[in-house]
Write a protein that binds this DNA or RNA. Structure first.
Length: 460
RNA sequence: GGCGCGAUAGCAAAGCGGUUAUGCACUGGAUUGCAAAUCCAUGUAGGUCGGUUCGACUCCGGCUCGCGCCUCCA
């Protein structure tokens, strides 16, 4: 029985879908003005684990992860780059898909783009106008009137008074309340624009998620997720829009993943600690990054350092080692097994991936203690539920063991040539020469392993 | 200022009111021509002060420290 922490109630709750056997899941995806960074990666991997686990648990899941391809930052960036908005967004979307593929993140059922849903947004804003929850300012922008939505603040646990006390909200002369937010922005010269009842313009930030979720999942659905920072104002505003317009509950379970930190500091461009996934993949294999992300519970802050990634790499190598030379097959999990039960219990407990991973290590241990191929197969099948251990183990170790290295073809031939030389030396018991070759290869990160079936090699 | 979260062994990170988490690193032994991998053995951790309890890392409260949101942000 799956339990999830619901941000709305701040409690662990038993998950009960609206329609038995079906889950409607929406996650706020990327605003595509730049490459994905590790924080995005964390969010995308976390909800990928949720998607996989729901599916594995027997639910038919409709997973929608949107792309926001129109907003201030996109317009600014395109202008600064001297390129069109669509050129920028198409490029970033292609990069994103590449990053996601490398991270073993499955594609969602639907990946709608905001610019394909502008008419729906206009329609929703009209409904809000009709209900007296929206108004147009004298500047042509349309605003949401937060004071007219009594539940405003229920997700973030804030009252309007608390929010006003922060005094961090810029006042402008067009809003009735400084906390009102923009639903529709009137067009400025040179900006993309769509016709609307309020004149040409473009949507505000939050409206696209209310509209796209409704389009694919309905007015009321099961789970809505995103990064912790989206709790307020983005998700709060989505609730105001959707529940304000429809007059009933929008989402049953809200899930938010914790932030990623870098060297114990918030990741930010000004601190210069901003890593794109691509940067990291130049050093570590994406599987290592995915494994690293799953060693922490998704709601906790996670600190990135090179040392932590190196730890993760070594741990992952332990798992891959257990698969080396084993006859394994992918396939259905036998959930009667002790480790399988513990694994399920862990994930059912608000996606406790660290505990699930511990079961992977337990099985790896079992492989070496007589469990052999059977235990290795069990390990592989559980790992693959999490999107782990997708590679052939021998290839994994020869291609860098989690480090990104140049693997030129002649490099392999050279290594195997040296191994042959060493074998010849060993056969005449010239161990001095044999050890010299071993040391020389070790110095460049290649370990030789003498076994019953001959000498194998791997990178460290 | 408002709201919220956290503090676990060298590092990372879980569960749990009384029994070994787990991983990485380290140490000793086995194994090996030497190694690697693996196996065996080895860690009296739970910020601090108090309370509840037969018993608390685990529940409650104070304190200290760290962090997040309140503005664009996954």
């Amino acid at each position: 029985m799956l339990r999830l922490f619901n941000t709305l109630t701040r409690r662990l709750e038993i998950f009960r879908p609206i329609t038995p056997g079906q889950v409607h899941l929406y996650v706020c995806g990327m605003t595509v003005y730049d490459r994905c960074h590790l924080g995005h990666g964390r969010m995308l991997v976390n909800f990928d684990v949720l998607y996989r686990w729901l599916t594995m648990s027997g639910y038919s899941v409709t997973y929608v992860r949107n792309i926001t391809d129109i907003d201030d930052k996109i317009i600014d960036r395109a202008a600064r780059n001297g390129e069109s908005i669509s050129a920028l967004t198409e490029r970033m979307i292609a990069f994103m898909h590449q990053d996601l593929t490398r991270l073993q993140v499955l594609p969602p059922t639907h990946e709608p783009r905001a610019t394909d849903h502008v008419p729906g947004m206009i329609s929703l804003i009209e409904q809000l106008m009709t209900k007296g929850l929206a108004y147009s300012g004298s500047n042509g922008d349309v605003y949401y009137s937060v004071r007219d939505f009594p539940d405003y603040g229920k997700l973030s646990g804030k009252s309007l008074e608390d929010l006003r006390a922060g005094e961090r909200v810029a006042r402008d002369g067009f809003k009735r309340d400084p906390l009102d937010f923009v639903l529709w922005k009137s067009a400025k010269p040179g900006e993309p624009q769509w016709p609307s009842p309020w004149g040409p313009g473009r949507p505000g930030w939050h409206i696209e998620c209310s509209v796209m979720s409704e389009c694919y999942l309905g007015e009321h659905f099961d789970i809505h997720g995103g990064g912790h920072d989206l709790q307020f104002p983005h998700h709060e505003n989505e609730i105001a829009q959707s529940e304000g317009a429809h007059g009933h509950t929008f989402v049953n379970y809200w899930m938010h993943n914790g932030f990623l930190r870098v060297n114990d500091e918030k990741m930010s461009k000004s601190l210069g600690n901003f890593f794109t996934l691509d940067d990291i993949f130049n050093k570590y294999h994406p599987d290592v990054v995915r494994f690293f992300l799953m060693r922490g519970q998704y709601r906790s802050p996670l600190n990135y350092t090179d040392a932590h990634l190196e730890d993760a790499r070594q741990g992952l190598n332990t798992l891959y080692t257990a698969l080396r030379g084993r006859g394994v097959s992918d396939g259905a999990v036998d959930w009667e097994g002790e480790h399988e039960k513990a694994f399920r219990r862990a994930l059912d407990d608000d996606l406790n991936t660290p505990e699930a991973v511990a079961e992977l290590f337990a099985l790896a241990h079992e492989v070496h203690r007589g469990g052999g191929d059977a235990s290795a197969t069990r390990l592989l099948r559980l790992a693959r539920i999490l999107g782990l251990l997708p590679q052939d183990p021998e290839a994994w170790f020869q291609e860098g063991a989690g480090l990104t290295v140049d693997t030129a073809v002649d490099d392999r031939e050279r290594i195997e040539g040296l191994i042959a030389q060493r074998l010849a030396a060993r056969q005449v018991r010239d161990f001095a020469t044999a050890d010299q070759i071993r040391q020389a290869l070790l110095a460049e990160g290649v370990v030789l392993e003498d076994g019953a079936g001959g000498t194998q090699w791997r990178r460290t």
